[in-house]
Design a protein around this nucleic acid. Structure first.
Lengths: 150, 150
DNA sequence: CTCGCTGCAAATTATTTGCATAGAT
DNA sequence: ATCTATGCAAATAATTTGCAGCGAG
């Protein structure tokens, strides 16, 4: 945990930004909720517990900044809000998501499944791939079992 | 063109909805701009040329309705707006996109490249895949050539 | 002292909703 | 007549911005 914060601090400083207390608390909340895909509002509420004076705009500005620095990915599952997802250390690519259409749960896939597909895109379409976003919509294990029981 | 409208009319009627003049004009605009990924506002402005009395809310409602009926897919490229994309006739899945990070161009890939990947997700993650969204971010052919010339 | 960073409030943007009316069957 | 669909305006929701003050170097 501390070393990841340290790494993020260095990323900020490398781009002439400071790790202010507000930014640090925000980063801690993101690290502590790494598996959830928090919206700006979600982050704000959690940050507020630890640092009540913070303003929503600061959280937005921090999330925006961290996205630019590729510490976070800003994602959008189609409900009206942006969500923020920490990149894994050293992850070249964005990870994939499985969104359950029944219960709304979001699972992550770390494994990079797109190696072959990217080659096809690069060769057949002459498109230089720098990143990708892949989301599957369907029914998660739990909901499949639940409907089997009925 | 006319036959696609006819097909969409049947889809609407199959779900107890009518193809009103407003809806028809909206569908025509979508068909005429099939390659472009229009926002609701974009659609509204184009529809207004042909049917000036229409209200923005009607366009939103029509787009929403057509999305529910799977005639359209609502997509989000990360700028703040939703965009709408006609499904190809009989396409089981959403098509893929190549978004150029330099010029912003969006290219489509019809080919379904994810067959194998879906099998892995279904087997290894016990997730029943119903649809997917895949977007590659990178540099399109034109921008690659442009930077080569510099 | 300077300058980036913050909090607050106001502004902006996208989208949705309430409601009275028009239109089709 | 009934009931859906529409246009308009107002409401809501998410995000951004202007600005005065704070705080570290």
């Amino acid at each position: 945990m501390e070393n990841r914060i340290q790494r993020i601090k260095e990323t900020l400083q490398g781009a002439q930004y400071k790790l202010t207390p507000q930014r640090e608390v925000t980063v801690r909340v993101l690290l502590e909720n790494e598996r959830d895909h928090l919206s700006a509002e979600d982050v704000f509420l959690k940050v507020k517990d630890k640092y009540p004076e913070i303003g929503l705009a600061t959280v937005y500005r921090t999330l925006e900044l961290l996205s630019e620095l590729k510490v976070l990915d800003k994602i959008n599952f189609g409900d009206g809000v942006s969500r923020y997802d920490l990149r894994k250390e050293g992850a070249e690519h964005f990870h994939h998501h499985l969104v359950c259409m029944e219960c709304g749960a979001v699972e992550e896939i770390e494994e990079d499944l797109l190696g072959d597909v990217e080659k096809i895109v690069e060769n057949d379409y002459n498109f230089k791939v720098l990143d990708h976003r892949l989301t599957f919509h369907g029914v998660c294990r739990d909901c499949q079992e639940r409907s089997r029981k009925k």
